[in-house]
Simulated assay, not measured.
Amino acid sequence: MHELGVLMEVVRIVEDAVREQSLTQVDRLVLQIGEMALVVPSYVEQCYPAAVQGTLLENTRLDIEIIPASGRCRQCHHVFHVAEGYVKCPCCQSYSWELLGGREFMIKEIAAC
């Protein structure tokens, strides 16, 4: 489970930003995770308490927003939701499509006092 290591890096980044802005407390951290990201949102939620223990984020609430995976067909240009197991465009049945989004992992918001 690499999510703990990823979260520890997020904590470092957020703590640096908090110190840089001379903030004293963070109330909420919002992460955006794509449906096809290499981190699993439920694992992130489970690891969060361990990652923030003893840090400036220890009493911070974590919110996770899921970014849908979307693809665009290279033949008919149809944009569609990419579900697990997709191999072809649902409109023209072409196997030639590109992933537009859904692999993201981003810090969206740091809500502070």
Rank of each mutant, 00 (worst) to 15 (best):
H2G: 10
H2W: 10
E3N: 08
E3R: 06
L4V: 08
L4M: 13
G5V: 04
G5T: 10
G5Y: 14
V6S: 04
L7P: 00
L7V: 07
E9N: 11
V10L: 05
V10F: 04
V11G: 01
V11L: 03
R12I: 02
I13Y: 07
I13Q: 12
E15D: 04
D16R: 13
A17Q: 06
Q21C: 11
Q21K: 15
Q25H: 13
Q25Y: 07
Q25P: 01
V26G: 03
V26K: 02
D27A: 10
R28T: 08
R28A: 07
R28K: 15
L29R: 05
V30L: 15
V30T: 15
V30I: 14
V30F: 05
L31M: 09
L31G: 01
L31P: 01
I33K: 02
I33C: 05
I33Y: 05
G34L: 00
E35V: 03
E35D: 08
E35S: 09
E35N: 05
M36L: 15
A37K: 03
A37N: 07
V39M: 02
V39C: 04
V40G: 00
V40W: 11
Y43M: 10
Y43S: 15
V44P: 00
Q46W: 11
Q46C: 08
C47T: 01
P49F: 05
P49Y: 05
P49S: 14
T55G: 09
L56E: 11
L57H: 02
N59S: 12
T60C: 15
T60Y: 03
R61D: 03
L62I: 11
L62K: 06
L62Y: 07
I64R: 01
I64P: 01
I64S: 00
E65K: 14
I67M: 08
A69L: 09
A69V: 07
G71M: 12
C73N: 05
R74Q: 14
R74H: 12
C76G: 12
H77R: 13
H81A: 13
H81T: 15
A83H: 12
E84R: 07
E84M: 02
G85H: 03
Y86T: 14
V87T: 12
V87K: 03
V87S: 09
K88I: 02
K88E: 06
C89K: 01
C91K: 12
Q93D: 14
S94P: 04
Y95M: 06
Y95K: 04
Y95C: 01
Y95V: 02
S96L: 08
E98A: 12
E98S: 13
L100Q: 12
L100S: 08
L100P: 07
F105S: 01
F105P: 00
F105K: 00
M106P: 00
I107C: 02
K108D: 08
K108N: 08
K108I: 11
E109W: 05
E109I: 10
E109V: 11
E109G: 11
I110S: 01
I110P: 00
A111P: 00
C113Q: 15
